[in-house]
Nucleic acid binder design. Sequence first.
DNA 1: AAAAGTATGTTGCTATAGCAACATACTTTT
DNA 2: AAAAGTATGTTGCTATAGCAACATACTTTT
Lengths: 231, 231
Amino acid sequence: MEMLLEGLKKSELFADFPEEIVADCILPHRQIQEYRKGLCLIRPQQKVSRFGILLSGKINIMHIFMEGSCSLINALRPGEILGADLIFTRSQLSPYHAVTAADTRIAYFPAELATRPGMLPEIWRAELTRQLAAWISNGNIKKEYRLAILSQKGLRERILMFLTLQASRRQTTSFAIPFSREELAAYLCVNRSALSRELSLMQEEGLITFQKNYFRLHFLKPAENGQILPY
Amino acid sequence: MEMLLEGLKKSELFADFPEEIVADCILPHRQIQEYRKGLCLIRPQQKVSRFGILLSGKINIMHIFMEGSCSLINALRPGEILGADLIFTRSQLSPYHAVTAADTRIAYFPAELATRPGMLPEIWRAELTRQLAAWISNGNIKKEYRLAILSQKGLRERILMFLTLQASRRQTTSFAIPFSREELAAYLCVNRSALSRELSLMQEEGLITFQKNYFRLHFLKPAENGQILPY
DNA sequence: AAAAGTATGTTGCTATAGCAACATACTTTT
DNA sequence: AAAAGTATGTTGCTATAGCAACATACTTTT
């Protein structure tokens, strides 16, 4: 129980809720489930009418295609939320696969907690809905950035856009990226060896310096106000 | 006033609200604005603390890059909602440009209507938040589908994925697509003439038939249950 | 109905990035 | 410390899609 509360606190979803509301109205509806690595929790066309908070483990949100290829949409970590983007839609049908990428524990809660009056005092239902909307919105923005990157035609342009966005988010021109080369190639939807080649080329040309995941950008001048502009 | 109510009804956002709540608590906070075509209503890093319902006209949500290129994220039409994806985030900062693509009228409402207690009875605040979350979720899913398409490397693969998704959404293998060739090329992030060439090739090979925006798919067999599978 | 304008299709050439195969560097296991 | 395994970089070849330039079809204007 203590451990559960810990896991839930990490999620910030109920952070502003009074203890007694959490204890009396929310926790009683929890349903804890454990899964081994490699299981498919949600598949396309499946109805999702609950949301889950990851207590431990890792879940990949992905599209898997008939010919065997797949594209990773998101990787959920402890404290993050599963299914929030589906419970408010009319059909509640998933467009994606959710697959455990490690042994995983999830605390599920019924969608009605947020979507229907009755389970929570209305002020806290509104607050929960607001928090879920915030989570969905953040995912939305991430996808928008990735679309902006993928809409660049050239490999170099994609790399530059990716690095520029990273720099502007972090407000610095030197930083570690959260991807291995292979993962970065997948994120940018390009061939890994072509990516390596282009990065080396860019380093030769003096545009960037890098070792492993650590990058320094030399092509961005901070603006007058010291801010690094998004684009 | 009558016309305003008409425009708002088209949006479905307040569809389930009692007349008196709309009249007493919502409409008084409206702020109607008119814009000529070609104006930039929202730019990156701008704080957005209200949402707007399009009464007439058209708004393009897009990323515009320094070198002059841009990528279209969405095109808002009357009844659709501007800024909903931003008001619930912590910073409320926009990552995108919103540009009028025609003379446009918008009814704005303060974010607090949904995000803070006080302006609406809590039950209706929760309902409004739920409706906005639904709108955001739908946008989310659209972006996810587009990411699935753009993560296909080949031009033909992108076309096939696009057509397959259209077919599965409409549950038929013949349909009109909502894009001109130029728009489809932009959506798929490919060269228009390369797209035309590939479509012609696919027709020669008997995979599809098309004239103008009307497509017939011959590569999809409906599943046993008669459903057309997503992928 | 003619003319102008726009959208779409066609073709050849070429730059680009994918692929394969291997080299090197780094990490983990024993 | 050696060995095995994994991640990353390098290179040459080639398929693919972008581009330009033009042809044809369709739409709108006058």
